[in-house]
Design a binder for these strands. Sequence first.
DNA 1: GATAGTTTCAAACGGGCGTTTGAATTTCCT
DNA 2: AGGAAATTCAAACGCCCGTTTGAAACTATC
Lengths: 235, 235
Amino acid sequence: MASRPARRNVALDATSADTKTRILDAAEALFTEHGFEATSLRQLTAAAGVNLAAVNYHFGSKEELFQAVLTRRLDPMNQERIELLEALERQADGRPPSCEKVLFAMLMPALRLARDERRGGKNFLRVIGRAYADPAPFIRHFLHAQYAEMVERYKEAFLRALPHLTRQELTWRLHFVLGALSYSLASTDALKQFAQVTHADNDELMLQRLAPFLVAGLKAPALVDTGRLELAPGE
Amino acid sequence: MASRPARRNVALDATSADTKTRILDAAEALFTEHGFEATSLRQLTAAAGVNLAAVNYHFGSKEELFQAVLTRRLDPMNQERIELLEALERQADGRPPSCEKVLFAMLMPALRLARDERRGGKNFLRVIGRAYADPAPFIRHFLHAQYAEMVERYKEAFLRALPHLTRQELTWRLHFVLGALSYSLASTDALKQFAQVTHADNDELMLQRLAPFLVAGLKAPALVDTGRLELAPGE
DNA sequence: GATAGTTTCAAACGGGCGTTTGAATTTCCT
DNA sequence: AGGAAATTCAAACGCCCGTTTGAAACTATC
């Protein structure tokens, strides 16, 4: 009546890892295609070629499986982001790295993940993008926890690179940056209809176009110079 | 055995409209809070104070109800966007309106909707934002159809205001703009945790901060000037 | 080669889902 | 008032869900 796997005494857990990995891979693909709610454990375990009960045995619940799917990729990616940022700061000791460089350090791990087909590739980026807009509280809380440290580190770096921005102003702008990024990552196929972009390697292309857009937005003056938002009907 | 309501012969359909409106209002609130999949017709009809079968009677299905929820607000909003743009072009006849003005014409109806508590208010903006990231195909197709004309009109206007951009480049940037907008609208409560923004009238504040960010991004040169995206590990 | 621990398996559990039905009720028009 | 149409209602239909169970099949250790 072992409801959860206990730590293996010795040896390699090849069999177990195989099942677990097969589940994670199938989950990643299906959560991408249909979303969390719309993916049933029955279709998921069928796609993975494992027994229905395997998910609850290895991960505890569907929610914990989803977190495992996210954590498998997010953890190394955000780790890499932090390391890149630290390298930047070490390299230009004393003076703050430029806004462009900081932003690139943030985007590059995402791009690298998108390119790495062996380990999830573009599929997973769409999972992140969608997860960020998901209404389920456990997803939001989990993502917030996963990203918190990374975002805080980058906020400090951007603050030094963009001294004309208050902390609050920058918080908003980082939110916009993550928004444009998540959204763009999430809707690659929607883009195909919408934007008639037909190339296969969309993601690199997209990040190369996204970067200058975001850099300019980050560097913009804090208040708009021409015109103001008014509610009087157009005349 | 009337499976769907036929057109009323004369008179006002006050009773019917009441039930329909109650359903639409409850659906708007619940879809916002829990998403489409996670909202059941049973809790929805209970919240609206109507019979379970009323949704299928008045709207046909849960999916059609969702489309009705969207269309009730999106239709007038996009109509207003188009009218504002036409007013802009009439007003500055011949020469193209500035990028700022075109963008404001696009944002203003969303802001006005956010302010209009009587008719959905901020709740609904979050529904749109989430719908845009939803994996369900029927939602994407529906939104694409709803937005297609408006987006096309604005694309032409932006093209004239930003002659340094190719059509393809602008398509990407409009995608980023809509992404940042949807995402920001969708995650107002996430923002509260994330950004420690505590004011009640967030949406106006947000659009006022979003506008300069987006204007700068739209105006940015087509290719980034300093640095390039490279995959060599940070060094 | 017995034994203890780990993993798989088929089957079932209880429950919630969207939708349909057909009768009861209300509303509208002559 | 009467009859037709529109609307509401309680109940049920069939289906799929996430999870649990307990026995069977493995695997590793002594």
